[in-house]
Structure formats: C-alpha cells, structure tokens
C-alpha cells in the first residue's frame, strides 16, 4: 500500500496503517528534522510530536500524491516552534543555546567516521543542503522525490546536492 493510501487510512483512525506509515517514513522524517534542528535530542522530541500530529490530523490531509511533503510541513512547523521555544528560553535568561547558535553539534555515535561525517554535514552545510543531503544519503530518497517533497526544481536539488557533497569532501580533507 502506498504512503498516500496509508495516510488516508490513518485519517480514518486505522492504527495499523499508522504503524506501517511510520516504518515507511521514519528515516526520512527523522533525517528531515535532524537537518533542521541539528541536534539529535531535539530531533527525537520533535519527531515524536510530528508523528502524534500526523496521527491526530491525518484527516485533514488532502490527497495530492505527496504525503511526505505534507508530513514534512508538519515537521517543519514543529521544528520552528522548537526554535521559538528555545529562543524564548534564551530570552528569559536561561541562555540555553542550541547547536544552531554555538555551531557545535554533539552526536552520540560510536563510529567516529560516521560521527565525523554527519557532524561536518550538520555544521558546514546550509539548511537546504542539509535537508537534501540527509534525505538522499541517509533516508534513501531519490533526488526527484526530494524535489517534489521540498517543492524545489529537480535541477536545484541536484546541483545543491553536488555542491554540498563537494563542500563536505573538501572540508573532510582539510580537517
């Protein structure tokens, strides 16, 4: 069953469809959120909120053949809310700086090369590059799917991807 059909079923309260949809999309959704937040703890939190929101508002999904794009919109909004929340806390004097502000990304990964590459990607790439790179490399989405889900022209996705990978190579070589 396609994600589209699954999502429609989720809208009718089908929890099995929801589980299936979760398994089909968790990498992509997590990659997307991580690429925005750059922090695994926050990403996990937002991922949970995202899927909860997907569950509760699936009925408002209008079939457009782009279920992932819809899920990304939810995730993006929640990510931005997270930023606002953090900003608010920082304004209140807690000075709880996140990765975005300190530029440091902390990843609980044992494999050093994995950690190094992901950390570099999160630190040196711009947000759209991070999204494209993580969605393709980590979540296995095709460039075309990314283009559709992020509403970008395919060529933009391709050239951003190439540029980002080139940047990464260069950076890793020099570090």
């Amino acid at each position: 069953m396609s994600d589209e059909e699954l999502l429609n079923r989720v809208g009718t309260g089908d929890s099995e469809a929801f589980r299936q949809l979760y398994h089909n999309t968790d990498r992509a959704v997590y990659s997307f959120i991580l690429s925005i937040l750059k922090n695994p703890q926050d990403a996990e939190e937002v991922m949970q909120e995202t899927y909860l929101k997907i569950w509760t508002s699936a009925a408002s999904y209008h079939s457009q053949g782009k279920p992932l794009a819809w899920m990304f919109t939810i995730a993006r909004n929640l990510c931005y809310m997270k930023f606002r929340e953090q900003k608010h806390q920082a304004d209140m004097g807690l000075d709880d700086l996140n990765g975005e502000e300190t530029g440091e990304v902390c990843l609980p990964l044992e494999n050093l090369a994995d950690a190094m590459v992901l950390k570099s990607a999160l630190e040196i790439l711009k947000e759209d590059e991070r999204q494209i790179v993580l969605l393709h490399a980590s979540a296995g989405l095709k460039h075309r799917e990314i283009a559709a889900d992020l509403q970008m022209p395919l060529a933009t996705v391709l050239s951003k991807y190439n540029r980002a990978i080139k940047k990464l190579k260069q950076y890793l070589r020099e570090e």
């Binding site: 990659s31 991580l34 695994p40 090369a113 590459v117």
Partner: peptide, 9 residues
C-alpha cells in the same frame, strides 16, 4: 557514513 550515522541515531 551519513546513512550509517542516521540509521544509528
């Protein structure tokens, strides 16, 4: 590496 990192995370 990116895949493996995100898979783990």
């Amino acid at each position: 590496h990116l895949k493996s990192a995100v898979d783990t995370l």
